[in-house]
Amino acid sequence: MPPTDASTDAGTAPATELATDTGPRSGPGSSSGTSTDSEDTLDLRLPDELIALFAGEAGTRGGATGDATAEAMGDASGGARGERRGMAENPAATPADDDLLDHVGGWGPTATPVGVFHLVPVRVERDLPLIARWMNDPAVAEFWELAGPESVAEEHLRLQLDGDGRSVPCLGVLDGAPMSYWEIYRADLDVLARHYPARPHDTGIHLLIGGVANRGRGLGSTLLRAVADHVLNKRPSCARVVAEPDLRNTPSVSAFLSAGFRFSAEVDLPDKRAALMVRDRALRDLL
């Protein structure tokens, strides 16, 4: 998944770090992760929304609950993009007025030490050329695997925009200028939940910093902290924000630590061993 710009936070990251390691490629996989944090193992109840999705899928298709679960969760053998696609393509069995992420588009701007930051939900007709250009940056493409013609990025975006709302793609706009791409998603309803003891309303983030000029100067950690806290402020039911950078990417992990996340566990995903990073509501004033 896209990384964090750790070059000024950790002092060791190359300027491309935040373009890389916290995005869809490191999505959920087939083997279970292990947690070393006993606090993270207490609540293993399936969220009500996920139960409703499975039940609705089974009723619609007339199939068994097991078939509905497989459809909703995606094909674990298909890789990260295939699994996230399985989640996005599943039609929501939730009411139309039940927004799974508390209306990200209405969250508004938030003040940060580097300027006013705003998560603006993607509009394909407006934003596709810019996002596709970022996805074709070699530093980004290595981890996101969405390089190619605009149609590749468009498919990725539409799978979220046409889905049930559990993942919302956004432009990160800093002082009026689009400079990053984010995905705010329900981690507890995502296939990632197979790999850690998810709690209801856990919220995940993926990101990339688009322009090379914005990388390597500490923006990653600053914006990660700001966005994580923005999520907690706007989603009162969410107690944790999670992310899963590649464990080998020490600068990226360091950037999350600098942003007030804690290292919770190592988890095995299809294409990497990841560091599960968690920012807790209860600890955010201390970290």
Rank of each mutant, 00 (worst) to 15 (best):
P178N: 06
I205G: 00
G216K: 08
D188T: 08
E183N: 11
L224K: 00
H156W: 15
G163S: 07
V168T: 12
D188S: 12
C170S: 09
H195F: 04
L171T: 10
A213P: 07
D162A: 13
L174V: 12
T203K: 00
L224W: 04
D202K: 01
H195L: 02
V168D: 03
G204R: 00
H206T: 06
V168Y: 01
R158C: 08
R199T: 13
L174M: 11
L157R: 02
G176Q: 04
A226I: 13
Y185W: 08
L192I: 10
G176L: 09
Y185P: 04
T222W: 05
A198T: 10
G211C: 09
S221N: 11
R158Y: 04
G220L: 11
V173C: 05
S221M: 12
R217M: 13
Q160N: 08
V212N: 12
A213W: 12
L207A: 14
V168P: 03
L208Y: 05
H206M: 09
S221W: 10
V168F: 04
Y196I: 07
M179C: 14
A213F: 14
D164H: 13
G165A: 03
G165M: 02
G216S: 11
V212A: 15
G211F: 15
L189P: 02
S221F: 10
A177Q: 06
H201Q: 00
L189Q: 09
R158F: 08
L189I: 05
T203A: 00
L174F: 12
I184Y: 02
P200N: 00
G220R: 06
G218K: 04
L189T: 09
L224P: 01
G165H: 00
L171F: 13
R186F: 02
P169L: 02
I205N: 00
G211T: 13
H206K: 03
L219N: 11
H156A: 15
L157Q: 04
A193V: 08
W182E: 03
S221E: 07
G220I: 11
G163I: 04
L161N: 03
D190L: 01
A226M: 14
G216R: 06
Y196K: 01
V212R: 15
I184D: 02
A187S: 11
G172P: 13
D188W: 05
P169M: 06
L223W: 07
A187H: 03
R225Y: 07
A226H: 08
G165S: 01
L189D: 10
R194L: 15
R166V: 08
T222R: 11
L219W: 14
G176C: 09
Q160S: 15
